[in-house]
Protein backbone atom coordinates (compact mmCIF):
# COMPACT_ATOMS: atom_id res chain seq x y z
CA UNK A 1 0.00 0.00 0.00
CA UNK A 2 2.71 2.50 1.08
CA UNK A 3 6.48 2.21 0.85
CA UNK A 4 8.61 5.03 2.22
CA UNK A 5 12.34 4.99 1.50
CA UNK A 6 14.94 7.40 2.85
CA UNK A 7 12.47 10.18 3.55
CA UNK A 8 13.99 13.50 4.60
CA UNK A 9 12.02 16.64 5.35
CA UNK A 10 13.22 19.97 6.70
CA UNK A 11 11.19 22.89 7.96
CA UNK A 12 12.85 26.33 8.02
CA UNK A 13 16.19 24.59 7.38
CA UNK A 14 15.74 22.43 10.51
CA UNK A 15 15.61 18.68 9.83
CA UNK A 16 12.27 17.25 10.97
CA UNK A 17 12.19 13.82 9.36
CA UNK A 18 15.53 12.11 8.78
CA UNK A 19 16.04 8.96 6.76
CA UNK A 20 12.62 7.51 7.47
CA UNK A 21 11.94 4.03 6.08
CA UNK A 22 8.76 2.01 6.55
CA UNK A 23 6.13 0.03 4.75
CA UNK A 24 2.38 -0.20 5.27
CA UNK A 25 0.49 -3.16 3.85
CA UNK A 26 -3.21 -3.41 2.98
CA UNK A 27 -5.54 -3.79 5.98
CA UNK A 28 -2.91 -2.55 8.41
CA UNK A 29 -3.57 -0.08 11.20
CA UNK A 30 -0.54 1.98 12.14
CA UNK A 31 -0.41 4.06 15.31
CA UNK A 32 1.99 6.91 14.68
CA UNK A 33 3.55 8.10 17.94
CA UNK A 34 6.04 10.72 18.96
CA UNK A 35 6.53 13.78 21.12
CA UNK A 36 5.09 17.14 20.11
CA UNK A 37 6.94 18.52 17.10
CA UNK A 38 8.39 15.17 16.10
CA UNK A 39 6.78 15.40 12.65
CA UNK A 40 3.72 13.14 12.93
CA UNK A 41 1.32 15.61 11.28
CA UNK A 42 3.97 16.52 8.72
CA UNK A 43 4.44 12.87 7.79
CA UNK A 44 0.67 12.48 7.26
CA UNK A 45 0.65 15.62 5.11
CA UNK A 46 3.51 14.26 3.03
CA UNK A 47 1.77 10.90 2.55
CA UNK A 48 -1.48 12.62 1.57
CA UNK A 49 0.27 14.75 -1.05
CA UNK A 50 -0.23 18.12 0.67
CA UNK A 51 3.51 18.64 1.17
CA UNK A 52 5.73 17.83 -1.77
CA UNK A 53 9.10 19.36 -1.00
CA UNK A 54 10.61 16.28 0.63
CA UNK A 55 13.58 14.19 -0.33
CA UNK A 56 13.33 10.45 -0.72
CA UNK A 57 10.87 8.07 -2.27
CA UNK A 58 7.22 7.42 -1.47
CA UNK A 59 5.35 4.70 -3.35
CA UNK A 60 1.59 4.74 -2.92
CA UNK A 61 -0.52 2.08 -4.62
CA UNK A 62 -3.70 4.17 -4.40
CA UNK A 63 -4.75 7.77 -4.91
CA UNK A 64 -8.02 7.20 -3.08
CA UNK A 65 -6.88 8.78 0.18
CA UNK A 66 -8.89 10.27 3.05
CA UNK A 67 -7.08 12.89 5.12
CA UNK A 68 -8.27 14.26 8.46
CA UNK A 69 -6.03 17.05 9.71
CA UNK A 70 -5.92 19.29 12.78
CA UNK A 71 -8.04 21.79 10.87
CA UNK A 72 -11.11 19.85 9.95
CA UNK A 73 -11.96 21.45 6.59
CA UNK A 74 -15.44 22.43 7.75
CA UNK A 75 -17.16 25.74 7.07
CA UNK A 76 -18.27 27.54 10.24
CA UNK A 77 -20.87 29.61 8.42
CA UNK A 78 -22.65 26.55 6.98
CA UNK A 79 -24.98 24.12 8.72
CA UNK A 80 -23.93 20.58 9.66
CA UNK A 81 -26.14 19.31 6.83
CA UNK A 82 -24.55 21.58 4.20
CA UNK A 83 -21.06 20.65 5.39
CA UNK A 84 -21.88 16.98 4.87
CA UNK A 85 -23.90 17.26 1.66
CA UNK A 86 -21.32 19.49 -0.02
CA UNK A 87 -18.30 17.35 0.86
CA UNK A 88 -16.80 16.21 -2.43
CA UNK A 89 -15.36 12.98 -0.98
CA UNK A 90 -18.70 11.18 -0.96
CA UNK A 91 -22.21 11.55 -2.31
CA UNK A 92 -24.30 11.23 0.79
CA UNK A 93 -27.71 9.68 0.28
CA UNK A 94 -30.39 10.86 2.70
CA UNK A 95 -30.56 7.43 4.38
CA UNK A 96 -26.83 7.01 4.91
CA UNK A 97 -26.60 10.57 6.22
CA UNK A 98 -29.44 9.90 8.66
CA UNK A 99 -27.70 6.74 9.84
CA UNK A 100 -24.31 8.41 10.23
CA UNK A 101 -25.72 11.41 12.09
CA UNK A 102 -27.70 9.08 14.33
CA UNK A 103 -24.56 7.13 15.26
CA UNK A 104 -22.79 10.34 16.26
CA UNK A 105 -25.83 11.92 17.99
CA UNK A 106 -25.85 14.77 15.48
CA UNK A 107 -29.42 14.48 14.18
CA UNK A 108 -30.72 17.28 16.38
CA UNK A 109 -27.87 19.55 15.26
CA UNK A 110 -28.14 19.06 11.50
CA UNK A 111 -29.64 22.50 10.87
CA UNK A 112 -27.27 24.25 13.28
CA UNK A 113 -24.48 26.40 11.94
CA UNK A 114 -21.08 24.99 12.72
CA UNK A 115 -19.89 28.03 14.67
CA UNK A 116 -22.53 27.27 17.32
CA UNK A 117 -21.11 23.78 17.94
CA UNK A 118 -18.49 22.74 20.50
CA UNK A 119 -15.07 21.47 19.37
CA UNK A 120 -16.13 17.90 20.19
CA UNK A 121 -19.31 18.23 18.10
CA UNK A 122 -17.32 19.67 15.19
CA UNK A 123 -14.98 16.71 15.46
CA UNK A 124 -17.99 14.41 15.25
CA UNK A 125 -19.10 16.11 12.01
CA UNK A 126 -15.69 15.43 10.49
CA UNK A 127 -15.91 11.84 11.71
CA UNK A 128 -19.26 11.46 9.93
CA UNK A 129 -17.28 12.36 6.81
CA UNK A 130 -14.83 9.60 7.72
CA UNK A 131 -17.75 7.20 8.24
CA UNK A 132 -19.26 8.02 4.82
CA UNK A 133 -16.01 7.98 2.82
CA UNK A 134 -14.96 4.83 1.02
CA UNK A 135 -11.20 5.10 0.55
CA UNK A 136 -8.28 2.70 0.41
CA UNK A 137 -6.09 4.72 2.75
CA UNK A 138 -7.14 6.80 5.78
CA UNK A 139 -4.67 9.28 7.27
CA UNK A 140 -6.09 10.52 10.56
CA UNK A 141 -4.31 13.19 12.57
CA UNK A 142 -5.43 13.04 16.22
CA UNK A 143 -8.87 11.52 15.45
CA UNK A 144 -9.57 10.96 19.17
CA UNK A 145 -8.86 14.54 20.29
CA UNK A 146 -11.83 16.39 21.87
CA UNK A 147 -13.94 13.22 22.05
CA UNK A 148 -15.52 11.60 25.09
CA UNK A 149 -14.99 7.91 26.00
CA UNK A 150 -18.03 6.80 23.99
CA UNK A 151 -16.80 8.75 20.95
CA UNK A 152 -13.32 7.23 21.23
CA UNK A 153 -14.78 3.70 21.28
CA UNK A 154 -16.93 4.54 18.29
CA UNK A 155 -13.94 5.71 16.27
CA UNK A 156 -11.89 2.69 17.28
CA UNK A 157 -14.68 0.44 16.01
CA UNK A 158 -14.95 2.44 12.79
CA UNK A 159 -11.21 2.10 12.21
CA UNK A 160 -11.47 -1.68 12.69
CA UNK A 161 -14.45 -1.76 10.27
CA UNK A 162 -12.39 0.03 7.64
CA UNK A 163 -9.54 -2.43 8.21
CA UNK A 164 -11.95 -5.34 7.69
CA UNK A 165 -13.01 -3.74 4.41
CA UNK A 166 -9.38 -3.88 3.23
CA UNK A 167 -8.34 -0.27 3.89
CA UNK A 168 -5.13 0.81 5.60
CA UNK A 169 -5.26 3.36 8.39
CA UNK A 170 -2.51 5.50 9.84
CA UNK A 171 -3.50 7.58 12.87
CA UNK A 172 -1.66 9.75 15.35
CA UNK A 173 -2.51 9.84 19.04
CA UNK A 174 -0.73 10.43 22.33
CA UNK A 175 -2.89 7.88 24.14
CA UNK A 176 -2.63 4.10 24.02
CA UNK A 177 -5.03 2.30 21.65
CA UNK A 178 -5.06 -1.45 21.35
CA UNK A 179 -6.49 -1.47 17.81
CA UNK A 180 -3.27 -0.96 15.89
CA UNK A 181 -1.40 -3.67 14.02
CA UNK A 182 1.82 -1.95 15.04
CA UNK A 183 3.25 1.33 16.26
CA UNK A 184 5.57 3.64 14.41
CA UNK A 185 7.53 5.97 16.65
CA UNK A 186 9.07 9.17 15.31
Amino acid sequence: MIKVEHLFYSFNDLPLLEDLNFEVKSSEIIHLKGVNGSGKSTLLKILSGILNNFQGKILLSTDNVFFLGHNLGLKDSLTVNDNLLLDYRFNAEAESLDEACNIFDLNSLRDSKLFSLSQGQKKKVSLVQFFLSKCDLFLLDEPFANLDKKGIELIENMIIDRQNQGASIIFTSHEEHNISSRELIL
Partner: peptide, 13 residues
Protein backbone atom coordinates in the same frame (compact mmCIF):
# COMPACT_ATOMS: atom_id res chain seq x y z
CA UNK B 1 -7.25 28.50 7.75
CA UNK B 2 -10.05 25.93 8.16
CA UNK B 3 -8.17 23.11 6.42
CA UNK B 4 -10.38 22.93 3.29
CA UNK B 5 -7.33 23.71 1.17
CA UNK B 6 -5.58 20.60 2.56
CA UNK B 7 -8.52 18.50 1.43
CA UNK B 8 -8.47 20.07 -2.05
CA UNK B 9 -4.76 19.29 -2.37
CA UNK B 10 -5.41 15.64 -1.49
CA UNK B 11 -8.29 15.38 -3.98
CA UNK B 12 -6.11 14.93 -7.06
CA UNK B 13 -8.52 17.18 -9.02
Amino acid sequence: KDGSLDLVLTSGK
